[in-house]
Design a protein around this nucleic acid. Structure first.
Length: 614
RNA sequence: GGCCCCGUAGCUCAACUGGAUAGAGUACUUGACUACGAAUCAAGCGGUUGAAGGUUCGAAUCCUUCCGGAGUCACCA
């Protein structure tokens, strides 16, 4: 990409010598020429027209002339309105291909020595993972890979919500109704097994609540507390939490269990550890299938008490203030936020306290320069507050915190709700997409000829590619809809489409096991398809950097699709093995190889594997 | 109600961060396998970028006001 800087600085010089005007290189806006115009790179000259008191055409022509004469790689230029288009020499592009082909770390930026911690997935232990988690995991994983490629040292982590009243609900339900059933004895994946008991608790509680509503006490509460003409249904719908806390037997038992857990009661802790181990076995299986790993796990049971000391210190420094009842708050009204509680009146930690403490621990564990939290957009406000607090506490990394906020995946019928059984389960959807790939491969010779294990491997790669690509290609902050009834697409703007471009290349290159494609030194005239591919490949390193800066894997996905599309077009229009000349053949083989490398690298940043055949 | 996010072709998404005639896929209608793999390629159809103002050489993008949708405003996490 050095050429862009050369053009910029040449234009700066030109402005200075021709117009006696000083400009900064960064002010020269330069981009790829749109394909409907002739040229490779375009400089927008509008901004200078006014200052120079000259017509766009005039400025364009003079600067264009200057650049063409100064730079050997620039072949010609044309001016359309205020756009100055440069065409680079074919020699230049040919050299680009040589450079890229000999660069094993193409698209991988030099280490910048900075550590960044990325938190993602962060499940609750009482429910299996669902499609929303898949989006979270894919974003977190691909972001980690992209940051790594952009030069950071990345620590992938998650915080596991393994405590609290919800966890006690499933424990209690198992204790009361489980008859010592285990995942093994019931042949159920551990996380689904525990999830089943969480749902069971909710069902039993619902029954208990419904019965209570009919009792004298229930009716009394209703008539005393209802607002105006509020219906019984509406009232009890809203009263549920209060009932759970004040009257429910099951609620009391669950709360007692939580107290026992906090008091480190042996029996409860053992039960807790046993059920957790079931859940983790299940989660690990899912992570393995989806293809992600973590460098470090944090458990809420270890971190929920953290942060209290920090709050005390902050209190002394008057970052926080104490109210009469003993609770501790921070006042953020001067920056347009509310007052927020950071410690309960009984001195125990809230969510915010925990997150403050966790950030500190992570910093002392790793000495991070940067942290990224992949968490759904319903927590936008929480992270705004958290980041502001860390800033006021003077944490050194406070300016480098980022909440990678993403939108919800909705079903055509609306939100996924676990209580209504409308969640798309992570394990199930992965099986489904692989089956979908299988259905699409029935009359494909290449796959039919493989042995069973190789077949399954390829089908897994294809199915997961379809699923992952579909999710990653959408910008994180946008919500998306997913219709489980319509199968995941395998055609068009999809993962398998990109894989297929790669597979086509492999099938050609297989004929040259030694990678000796011959010399293309004397190859002179590149055609439009070759040029288009080269231009796109050359963009890759910059794209990685942009994507890392914006925390946006979707731009990589869209790039992969575009490059794949260009290659399919090229493949259709241009002969490779039966090219007009030996030089042309050598060049196209080398070009194809470069495309395949970039596709493989870029897709792997997204956690998508490429099959050699499909 | 306060704050925040979103609104682009029937549907799913783009648009190089303010640049040229808003592009892809899908669906629908056609055409291309005895040339390196048809999970492919090509052509057609499809738009007042939610609406109205404003800023400027130039707006889907920035500002204002509306309309529609999601989220959040817990001593839950």
């Amino acid at each position: 990409m050095k050429i862009l800087e050369e053009i910029q600085s040449t234009i700066v010089k030109g402005l200075s010598t021709i117009y006696n005007h000083d400009a900064n290189a960064e002010d020269i806006l330069i981009s790829q020429t749109r394909k409907e115009f002739q040229g490779d790179y375009t400089v927008v000259v509008f901004p200078f027209v006014k200052i120079l008191k000259s017509s766009p055409n005039d400025v364009g022509n003079k600067l264009g002339d200057h650049v063409v004469q100064s730079l050997e790689s620039v072949d010609s230029f044309n001016v359309v309105k205020g756009f100055l288009n440069f065409s680079l020499t074919h020699e230049y592009w040919k050299n680009q291909l040589s450079d890229i082909s000999s660069d094993d770390s193409f698209g991988i930026h030099p280490r910048n020595g900075k550590k960044v911690l990325v938190e993602f997935s962060s499940p609750n232990t009482n429910k299996p993972l669902h499609l929303g988690h898949i989006r979270n995991i894919l974003l977190g994983w691909s972001c980690s890979q992209i940051l790594d490629a952009a030069g950071y040292d990345v620590i992938k982590t998650q915080i596991i919500n393994d405590r609290g009243i919800a966890v006690c609900k499933s424990m209690l339900a198992w204790q009361k109704f489980g008859n010592n059933e285990t995942p093994e004895s019931s042949d159920t994946k551990g996380d689904h097994f525990v999830g089943k008991y969480y749902v069971l608790f909710e069902q039993k509680f619902k029954v208990e609540y419904a019965e209570w509503q009919k009792t004298e006490k229930g009716q009394q509460v209703f008539s005393e507390l209802k607002k105006g003409e509020q219906s019984e249904e509406d009232f009890f719908g809203k009263y549920k939490n209060t009932y759970f806390n004040d009257y429910s037997e099951l609620g009391n038992e669950a709360k007692d269990m939580l107290l026992a857990w906090e008091a480190k009661d042996d029996a409860i802790r053992n039960l807790w550890m046993m059920m957790n181990s079931w859940v983790y076995d299940g989660f690990n299986e899912t992570y393995k299938n989806i293809g992600v790993t973590f460098d470090k796990l944090y458990y809420e049971s270890d971190t929920y008490l953290l942060g209290k000391k920090t709050v005390d210190e902050g209190l002394e420094r008057e970052v926080f203030f104490r109210q009469d009842d003993g609770s501790v708050w921070i006042d953020l009204e001067d920056v347009g936020m509310d007052q927020k509680i950071v410690l309960r009146s009984d001195g125990t930690a809230v969510y915010m306290t925990q997150d403050i403490g966790t950030a500190m621990v992570r910093n002392s564990d790793f000495g991070v320069e940067k942290m990224v939290y992949v968490v759904g957009n319903e927590q936008d406000y929480h992270f705004k507050v958290l980041f502001e607090i860390l800033k006021r506490l003077g944490e050194p990394y406070a300016d480098e915190l980022h909440h990678l906020s993403y939108g919800m995946i909705e079903l055509p019928s609306g939100k996924m709700k676990s209580r209504e059984g409308t969640v798309v389960d992570a394990d199930e959807i992965m099986v489904e997409v692989i089956n979908e790939a299988r259905a699409g491969s029935v009359d494909r010779g290449e796959i039919a000829e493989m042995d069973k294990q190789a077949q399954e491997d390829v089908l897994r790669k294809i199915g997961l590619a379809a699923l992952k690509f579909m999710i990653i290609k959408v910008q994180p902050k946008k919500g998306m809809t997913f219709d489980p009834k319509e199968s995941v697409d395998m055609q068009g703007q999809t993962g398998p489409y990109v894989q297929y471009a790669y597979v086509r290349i492999q099938s050609v290159l297989r004929k040259f096991e030694n990678k000796d494609y011959g010399s293309y030194d004397s190859y002179k005239e590149l055609n439009e398809f070759e040029l288009a591919l080269l231009k796109e490949i050359v963009e890759y390193p910059r794209l990685v950097k942009d994507s890392a800066e914006n925390y946006d894997p979707s731009s990589i996905a869209n790039y992969c699709y575009n490059l794949g599309k260009m290659y399919h077009r090229f493949f259709h229009e241009v002969r490779i093995l039966t090219a007009e000349t030996e030089e042309a053949k050598a060049f196209r083989l080398q070009l194809s190889s470069a495309v395949a490398n970039v596709l493989e690298k870029a897709m792997s940043l997204l956690g998508i594997e490429m099959p050699a055949k499909m």
